[in-house]
Design a protein around this nucleic acid. Structure first.
Length: 300
DNA sequence: AATGACTCCAACCGCCTCGCT
DNA sequence: AAGCGAGGCGGTTGGAGTCAT
């Protein structure tokens, strides 16, 4: 009589293992449009060959706009230790005290780093303190799959400034980006100058993500609105893609001028970014645009 | 250069809880 | 009250990257 738990999905028909960028984009796009009322039915509706649980986990642990990545601060570590002392392995409860951190991440940090540190405290005056987990992670698989820069142990990358907030974008007097012509950024899909250089495949993917809900193109001032479903300031698909977009001097991670002046003429894109686009298209298995034949096909 | 041990963390698994009927 | 389905949680694992030899 139905004893035993029904499997959450037909495991023979679902894809498992690491998520591809294209799957991430599908999931993000769907949740932006429709939210996630029903995780079980979500993958089918979104066109994902994934288990609902897997989608939920991927969203919560990685794709949510408010997920904080990178080093745990000392305060955060202290909070974890202190809460763990009092409530034990209640990772979700601990995570509730650390905005932007997920239970899974906290659990991993505890198991791989904090637990060891506590059981084997660094000797007094040690000149080689135990590395923080994020610092020791270097550029592992994780970095490859997460589409977000993590500090490297060897040569920490400069962390790009956070994306401009929705309000900042609206405020033409303060936004560095808004110093560029409103015409250029008037439409959401054109927000990133790189859009002009996308091949058709990547353009379709990114526009699909951006168009319906990430912003609404009503074009007063900058013409941008945050979707009702997402309580976030700003989301740019470029921030989530792998390989990581190269940093170009004088520009932020999305290629926007960070100096308050236009370092590039409208429509001009750093070669590094063009090359990055081509690699991205190849990686995603999309049609590679041909407007840039000068870019070497491989090895950066 | 090769390779085996170790580290780390995303993803999976299965149980628990909760809400609905 | 009991059964069921779905979401949530915590433990565990797989495998890529790094380090040591």
């Amino acid at each position: 009589m139905g004893r035993g738990r029904a499997p959450c999905c037909d495991k023979s028909k679902v894809k498992r293992g690491p998520w591809s960028p294209a799957e991430d984009l599908l999931l993000i796009s769907f949740i932006q449009k429709f939210g996630h009322d029903n995780w079980r039915s979500l993958p089918k509706q979104a066109g994902l060959m994934r288990c609902g649980k897997s989608c939920r986990l991927r969203w919560i642990n990685y794709l949510r706009p408010d997920v904080k990545r990178g080093n745990f601060s000392e305060e955060e570590e202290d909070t974890i230790i202190s809460l763990h002392n009092s409530i034990g392995n209640k990772w979700s409860k601990i995570a509730a005290h650390l905005p932007g951190r997920t239970d899974n991440e906290i659990k991993n940090v505890w198991n791989t780093y904090l637990k060891k540190r506590l059981s084997n405290p660094p000797s007094q005056n040690s000149s080689s303190p135990a590395p923080s987990p994020s610092l020791s992670s270097s550029s592992s698989t994780v970095d490859k799959l997460n589409y977000a820069p993590l500090p490297s142990k060897v040569a920490p990358q400069p962390v790009p400034p956070p994306p401009p907030t929705h309000n900042a974008l609206r405020d033409s007097s303060t936004s560095t980006i808004s110093s560029v012509s409103a015409q250029k950024y008037g439409s959401v899909c054109n927000f990133d100058p790189l859009f002009d250089h996308l091949g058709p495949g990547l353009k379709n993917v990114l526009e699909e993500v951006d168009k319906p809900n990430c912003f609404v193109e009503n074009n007063d001032a900058m013409g941008m609105e945050v979707p009702l479903e997402l309580d976030c300031d700003f989301w740019n698909p470029f921030d989530y893609l792998e390989p990581m977009r190269p940093l170009v001097e004088g520009m932020d991670a999305r290629g926007a001028d960070v100096l308050g002046e236009e370092t590039q003429l409208p429509g001009e894109i750093a070669e590094e970014n063009k090359s990055w686009l081509r690699r991205l298209e190849k990686e995603l298995g999309l049609e590679v645009s041909g407007d840039d034949s000068s870019v070497p096909s491989d090895n950066s």
